[in-house]
Amino acid sequence: MGYFIDSLKAMATTFRQIFRKPATYEYPEVIRPRAERLRASFALPDDENGELACIACMACEKICPSQIIHIKSEGKRESPVTGKKRQYADTFVLDLTACIGCELCVQVCNSNAIYMVREQEVPGFEREDLVLNLERLRANAKSKTAAWAKGTVLQEMQELPKAEKKPAAEKKPAPEKKPAADATAAPPGDEKPAPEKKPVAEKKETPAPAAPADATPAAAAPAEAAPAAEAKAAAKPDAEAKPDGEAKPKEAEPAKAEGAKSDAAKEASA
């Protein structure tokens, strides 16, 4: 009996579904909203002179985990536009069927010559339909919109924080503040902290010996920032109580600095 009641419930559920809006998008006619960071295919843009930006440095071919990029170049020759000698990619083959979308090729490109686009390729009937050659890649640059990581965005995100400049900032905070803030404001990557408040935090810690060189290794590891921020309150009296210890302040102080930095970043973003 219970089975029949449950069956009726199941049938009621499926019946209710009938009146809901279908989830189907009839793809070629209707394109559903794409995710913000969707990346689907590739494009090879031109440089400012209207030539192919790719200089066939082979960086993307080397880094590609699925080894789907194959570039051939016939050596350097004179550019018809600028007259300078440069290298061209004469064939550029990208096999989209095996692409895993890691975007490493975009990251390593030093001449901003490849980026990913938001629109998929049209489905084909043969595998060859998804092997992109130079013409199709250049056409993509004109016809399709770029994904968010165009240009050097990814490279800037991956850069290490400018840790070497910190000691300088400690001594003369006023001149350092501004350029640092400018530099971090430019890329959209939000991991980069704005070190505006850092000098203030460090000023309180003047009794600690805090060799400037000691601050650098911890600063270079921003992953520790969050736990360090939590540990800040506990670490502070500790550091003040033992001004003589070399190891303790070394640990505690950069942690504090990082904590302050991440606080500052939060405020800046807010």
């Binding site: 009938i18 809901r20 809006k21 009839e26």
Partner: peptide, 13 residues
């Protein structure tokens, strides 16, 4: 069609 609508699809078109 019916099964399609039950599963939030649209069936043959």
């Amino acid at each position: 069609k019916f099964a399609g609508r039950m599963q939030s699809r649209i069936g043959p078109t």
